[in-house]
């Protein structure tokens, strides 16, 4: 693996055992996070974003198994690590921010207690841990952090709680921060504030971020690289410029067309992608998107397209990659 990359996922396959049979939730997923960069993940609900995150931090559900692939973090394969070793990485080297700030903090423990608890690995006096938490809270913009340390989560607003979650996640100065739709539950003004705060902190601390969102505007503003997921596959990945200006997979193309922010004139009906997401228990023999794709050709329904790098740092899983372009 390239030493310049914090995280590299290669050929990751994850399966769920379910009543409907084997669900192939992730298929041959590739992902690279260069050191100090922000990588965005877009895709609709159920496309495998959460499964991918959970595989990285080793918190997959009990009925899930990784059937093949590797996840290299700082040069070590996380899939080979024991539960104990993974626990040492979580919260210290890889941190997470979750979607719903209202439920991600423990309701009966003060935020001070929770922020100090997660520093349990550090052999320093409690007062020092407390000082660090206070500093982190003020860095994320919590006013009067010293006295608010004794408050409980329900005494904060949603935006404040998400700031606290960010403070907790960055407190240990992790190499990688995974943000799972951190702004989805917040209103638009707060979203912008949080995004800016996150970018500033990332800049000053120098960590890498894996940022999951279905808000394309946020991805475009924040990220350096983007991967587009669909039905458990990474259908396209590249730099933020390439994805937004030269989308090559028909799905990315459609997704961008559906972004309300890109529609110039006022309209009552927003565009949608016709069809449904595929059933992961009964996969088609060919391309996963073929059924909904306007450009599909005979080959698309017969053969699964490989992930091809058709331009520098720009991959797509499409037989027509390079031919389809934003015209």
């Amino acid at each position: 693996m390239d030493a310049n990359n914090v995280l590299e996922i290669r050929g990751l396959n994850v399966e769920f055992a379910s009543e409907r049979g084997r669900l192939r939730a992730l298929r041959d997923v590739d992902l690279t996070i260069p050191r100090g960069s922000i990588v965005g993940v877009v895709g609709e609900s159920g496309c495998g974003k959460s499964t991918m995150i959970n595989s990285i931090i080793g918190l997959l559900a009990h009925n899930a198994t990784v059937s093949s692939g590797s996840i290299s973090f700082q040069g070590e394969d996380l899939l080979q690590k024991s539960e104990r070793e993974l626990r040492d990485i979580r919260g210290q080297h890889i941190s997470m921010i979750f979607q719903d700030p209202m439920t991600t903090l423990n309701p009966v423990l003060s935020i001070g207690t929770q922020m100090i608890d997660i520093q349990y690995r550090d052999q320093i006096p409690k007062a020092q841990k407390k000082a660090r938490s206070i500093e982190m809270l003020s860095r994320v913009g919590i006013p009067d952090p010293e006295s608010r340390l004794d408050n409980y989560p329900h005494q904060f607003s949603g935006g404040m709680r998400q700031r606290i979650a960010i403070a907790m996640a960055l407190q240990a100065e992790p190499e990688l921060l995974i943000a799972d739709e951190p702004t989805t539950a917040l209103d638009a003004t707060l979203e912008v504030q949080i995004i800016h705060r996150l970018k500033d902190l990332q800049h000053s601390m120098g960590c890498s971020i894996l940022f999951i969102s279905h808000h394309l505007g946020v991805i475009a503003e924040l990220c350096d690289f983007v991967i587009v997921m669909y039905g458990g596959e990474v259908v396209e990945r590249g730099t933020v410029r390439d994805i937004f200006h030269r989308p090559s997979h028909p799905y990315t193309f459609k997704l961008l067309e559906c972004d309300p922010a890109r529609i110039a004139e006022t309209t009552r009906s927003l565009p949608t992608i016709p069809g449904e997401i595929p059933n992961l228990a009964k996969l088609p023999p060919g391309c996963i998107f073929a059924d909904r794709c306007e450009r599909s050709i005979g080959l698309c329904r017969e053969k699964i397209p490989p992930s091809t790098e058709f331009a520098e740092h720009h991959w797509a899983r499409c037989h027509l990659a390079g031919e389809v372009s934003s015209t």
Binding site: I57, R87, D88, Q92, F98, T104, D117, Y120
Partner: peptide, 12 residues
Amino acid sequence: NHVRTARAFGLP
């Protein structure tokens, strides 16, 4: 969810 958070922070 908050238990998942605690796990994600590697708490014992």
